[in-house]
Amino acid sequence: MLVKFCGATTAAEVRGVADAGADLVGLWHQVPAGRAELSAQRLAGLAAAARATGRLQPVLVTFGSDVEALARLTAGGGPWWIQLHGYQPPATVRALRALVPDGVRIVKVLHVQGASCVEAGLIGAYERAGTDCFLLDAVTADGRIGSTALPLKQATVTALADRMARPFLLAGGLSADNAGRFRGAVAHPRFLGIDVDSAARGPGGLLAEAHAAAVATAWRTP
């Protein structure tokens, strides 16, 4: 199981989630009004800090669709994963796949509102375009996406996973307290790991090692 904590803004947060047992750290760039938004320079610095831990892989989390700009961010030792968190079409994935260095993994977020997934009919197209894996995340009733802290229904998760040929990461209000609610999703043959934001944060709003460790331990405990 891969464990990803999202929205780091400091090198201390990066080191903390690495020490907590994380595999991936999400770094935001081109996330309009995002509380963890990073400049390209800060993104490069934190990506380097992640790699310096010896275990943590940086993930560029973006609503952007300028494939040339995104590809430049992965050049020269940039993030190893790109998470497309907006409503970018399969054509964007195809164009990005043609530009990024070998080894860069493309994650396409699928947005789920209630029991409905906006992109469900495009899963096959995203796979053919070059998506390496999907991330399932919740959309609020008013359409807000990203770090909503809303949990998905397990039946919805597994139904979508059954339509995929690629692995998936699970997001949406995951915490140390609700790991047991998703054992069916974890047991799915295409389950790859979890993506957590809010539950890994301390009182000051930053990612905290103790909170992150509690989440990682709970989800990795049979």
Rank of each mutant, 00 (worst) to 15 (best):
L169E: 00
V118Q: 14
D195I: 01
T140D: 04
D142F: 06
G130N: 13
R181P: 04
L174Q: 13
R166G: 07
M164L: 14
V93C: 00
A115I: 09
R181M: 14
V112T: 01
F182G: 01
T140A: 12
G173L: 05
T92G: 07
G114M: 11
V118L: 12
V139P: 09
L174W: 05
V100R: 07
A138W: 11
R190W: 12
T156K: 05
G121D: 05
A176G: 10
I145D: 00
R97V: 02
A141W: 06
R190Q: 14
G77Y: 08
D177R: 15
W80P: 00
T140Y: 04
V104S: 01
L136H: 01
L170D: 03
T74E: 08
D142R: 13
L84K: 01
T92H: 03
Y87W: 13
V196F: 08
D142V: 04
I145F: 02
L136T: 01
E119W: 02
G143F: 08
V186Y: 09
T148R: 03
D132A: 07
A138I: 13
G77M: 09
G180D: 14
A129V: 05
Q113Y: 10
A129L: 07
R190N: 11
V100G: 04
L135E: 13
G143E: 10
D197Y: 11
D137K: 02
P167C: 03
N178I: 12
P90H: 00
D177H: 14
T158I: 12
G78E: 13
E119L: 06
G114Y: 01
G193D: 04
T158W: 02
Y87C: 10
D197V: 15
V157Q: 12
C117T: 07
R190I: 00
F182Q: 06
G180M: 09
A120G: 04
A75W: 15
K153N: 10
S175R: 10
G173F: 03
S175M: 04
R97K: 13
V139G: 00
Q113V: 04
R181F: 10
F191D: 02
G143R: 08
T158F: 07
A165W: 02
L150T: 11
G143V: 04
T148W: 10
P189G: 01
P151A: 12
Q154W: 02
L135T: 06
E119D: 09
G103W: 14
R128I: 09
I106T: 09
G146W: 05
A91Y: 02
V157S: 05
A161R: 05
G77D: 10
T148N: 00
A176N: 07
P189A: 01
R105E: 14
V186E: 12
A176T: 09
R163P: 01
P151F: 01
K108M: 00
R105W: 06
L169S: 02
V186S: 04
L136W: 07
D197C: 15
E119V: 04
V109Q: 00
T148P: 09
A179Y: 11
G76Q: 12
T148V: 15
